[in-house]
């Protein structure tokens, strides 16, 4: 008796899933198919060139970027995985109780200290050397220095 109930449940879920999958394929297929078929076909000489302000581009779009970008990316991954763990804890907040809360607080505080360290050591500072130098060598608050009051 119980097996047939489970069987029925699984069959229902499976059927719902299959209907859903079929609907997804139908909708996407209609969208792609209609946009393929509708409208006109015109071909112009430079139509397929990438748009770069009207001039042909130099070099390809696939090239080795500087390693500079890697650092924020890897820091992001680390803190992103922290969020994953937070999600899984959030699902069982009540069941984990106070002990779980204290554990997660320790977890977060360890990572928070790491974040503060990164901020202080300058790993999150995206400015270039020249930008920092220019900011240091600025004179005064900026703006007009010899402003005189006059009556119009």
């Amino acid at each position: 008796m119980i097996e047939s109930a489970v069987d029925v449940g699984v069959n229902n879920d499976l059927r719902a899933f299959l209907i859903y999958g079929f609907a997804v394929v139908a909708v996407v297929g209609t969208m792609l198919g209609l946009s393929f078929v509708l409208g006109q076909r015109k071909n112009a000489h430079s139509k397929n060139l990438p748009f770069e302000s009207g001039i042909v581009s130099v070099g390809s779009a696939q090239f080795h970027t500087t390693i500079h970008f890697y650092l924020p990316a890897i820091l992001f991954i680390i803190f992103d995985l922290e969020v994953v763990f937070l999600f899984s804890w959030a699902l069982v907040v009540r069941e984990a109780g106070w002990a779980g809360f204290i554990e997660i607080a320790i977890f977060i505080s360890v990572l928070l200290i790491a974040l503060l360290y990164l901020a202080r050591v300058g790993a999150l500072d995206w400015r270039t050397q020249i930008q920092k130098r220019e900011l240091r060598t600025m004179v005064g608050p900026g703006g007009v220095t010899n402003r005189k009051e006059f009556k119009l």
Partner: peptide
Amino acid sequence: PRQADMIVIAGTVFRKMAPVVKQLYDQLLE
């Protein structure tokens, strides 16, 4: 140009700029 319908040629068309205008016109979609 991929997202635009109309191009307003506002101003003088220079010989140096003409191929650029033609390329932009080609890149406009129907």
